[in-house]
Design a protein around this nucleic acid. Structure first.
Lengths: 345, 345
DNA sequence: TTGAAAGCGCTACCAA
DNA sequence: TTGGTAGCGCTTTCAA
């Protein structure tokens, strides 16, 4: 149980125990290369360290070295979405491998909390800050964010004054559509997200590019906007199937839409994938993998974005650069499951 | 963009600027009650603070006060599950409201990383540590965990030497079954998780308690074990429906199981909820809310467990206690949607 | 009402 | 190969 507040021994205590100076102990503990400490001495020191339960005081070290080895991770409510974990995981893992800690703050979409969060992180002298949004969007980050190396994750600011990493929506849309084309589909429906948001714009562009590359004419009748919810998919796909020339495959802008589309198709008397092929987007494991048939989809690079953000920060910390901040388009990856087949007939 | 490494002004700089001592400046900044600083002086100080962009150095403060206001949050891969966000969110929010920061480390289920993580947190002098598991289970926490107030989240250790917070599985199972009984069902199937794990044991007990309370005899033929996957639900429910006296309602140990059960029922020619009522468990939003009909289920208290853990730590930090470590059973809550109806006929 | 100064624990320069 | 010691920026006691 919680031991009573007994404070840890200091480096001086260790030094005293082995009758050496704190300097030497410090050399041993930090394995300073230019100090030629003989093996025998090192052992004595380490023994005393173990014996006393010595633990270097991080605060003292930070104060002295001015390096906190800490990165701030601020989120706009992201922590409550199913993807949050992956982003944090990617960021945290790479940070850990480089001896950095992550301080996570969920600002809950509240601008004043956001600014306060950044302020606190700055007080803690974080070496960099990642600001992660809940979904791909434009944001207006607080001005104090730029006091330290910072990167935007799954979002970007209008003036591009901050580096950012976002999913390659165009590439993802292209990937998904190509999956269908590769199986021989030529009449491909698209149930997109709400118009205007980056994901919808990008995925549509990818869809069109894929069609163009395959020499298939774009037919506006085949593209519809769902509401990113399952019941959107339910109704939209039925509309699509009522067309004079219905699609043989449908690209759903979201796995949830696809989930609705499955139901819509079923109630329409059509089977996936025998009658209609379906691809989703997002790879929400929990839906995509457990739908029957399992959904072929495209995974959003959450884990990778987390890693990229930290890597970028790491570089910037090591060597500040004045080049204009990049926007990284992190590729999406296809997840092949069972919802796609060549068109019937 | 990343400003060049210019170091911040110190409290001494501020003092010099207003021609006062660091003491006074410190008094003003920390609003020390017993120092009677006149309003006029305070203003001068604050002005200089703003003007110079002064920012108190957290490391120096920590070194001096020996309080880090930091809590460690170590996870066993939890950060990659859809629930992770909620747990972290609950913990982080309450921490923030109490002026504490959360350092999050994902140990990825690797015991040596786990121990190293705790070690690093201890170096950083965290005031407490939360160790969160990916699902309700028994764990063997690293011994160094007990050097500081600690609480286990969604897990517990065999010897109960550490406090823990876990979902009230029994209560949840009871809740779910009662939901069915309240609608008049008497013949209630149960597709449980893999036997042996705490969730399966607890939910089964809750199921039996509910039956007993309603005076319904327990029929072993009605309880089956799925594999927590959707296709488990698919087959198990069909077995159940082939019984001579099939159930009119089925309690699925997981929303995923329920998802499979929906499909199994449909392929069996039965409708939810007209022919068979279904309840799930977990409230995996993304499934439960988007299934058709939307799934009535019971929510696991992730957010609440996060909060509870922090609150417990906060108390312990404020006032160490030697009472035997409690195990908190955090209640689950019913989420009523559309998959339950009174039995037909 | 304000200030001087000690000291938190560590690193790293300079000396020996 | 090892040690003395200054000083990182802050709080807080004691004194004025």
């Amino acid at each position: 149980m919680a031991r009573s507040k007994k404070s840890y021994p200091t480096i001086t205590d260790v030094a005293r125990a082995v009758d050496l100076s704190p300097t030497t102990v410090s050399f041993v503990i930090n394995d300073v290369p230019y100090a030629n400490i003989p093996e025998e001495t090192r052992e004595r020191v380490w023994q005393a360290v173990k014996a006393l339960g010595y633990r270097p005081n991080a605060a003292a070290k930070v104060l002295r070295t001015q390096r906190t080895h800490t990165i701030g991770f601020v989120t706009d409510e992201v922590a409550s979405t199913p993807f949050a974990g992956q982003v944090i995981k990617g960021a945290q893992e790479l940070a850990w491998d480089n001896g950095k800690m992550l301080i996570v703050i969920n600002a809950g979409g509240n601008p004043s909390v956001l600014e306060a969060a950044v302020e606190v992180l700055l007080d803690r002298q974080v070496e960099g800050i990642i600001y992660a949004a809940v979904y791909h969007q434009e944001v207006q980050p607080p001005p104090n964010l730029s006091e330290v190396p910072a990167v935007l994750l799954d979002c970007y600011c209008a003036d591009r004054s901050l580096p950012s990493v976002v999913p390659n929506e165009v590439g993802g849309g292209r990937l998904d559509t190509d999956l269908l084309i590769a199986q021989g589909h030529r009449r491909i429906g698209f149930i997109n997200l709400n118009p205007g948001i980056p994901a919808a714009v990008g995925r549509l562009q990818g869809y069109r590019e894929a069609l163009a590359a395959a020499g298939i004419a774009f037919d506006p009748a085949l593209v519809r906007h769902g509401n990113a919810q399952a019941d959107g998919g339910y109704h939209q796909i039925q509309q699509l199937m009522r067309l004079d020339a219905p699609p043989t495959a449908v690209f759903c802008g979201t796995d949830r839409t696809a989930m609705g589309a499955y139901d819509g198709l079923r109630d329409f008397g059509l089977r996936v994938p025998q009658d209609v092929s379906i691809v989703g987007f997002d790879n929400q494991e929990i839906i995509a993998a457990y739908l029957r048939p399992a959904l072929t989809t495209v995974a959003l690079p959450h884990y990778e974005m987390g890693r990229w953000a930290v890597q970028y920060l790491l570089n910037l910390i090591k060597q500040p650069s004045a080049t204009t901040p990049p926007q990284r388009l992190e590729p999406c990856s296809p997840i092949i499951r069972e919802s796609v087949r060549p068109p019937a007939g």
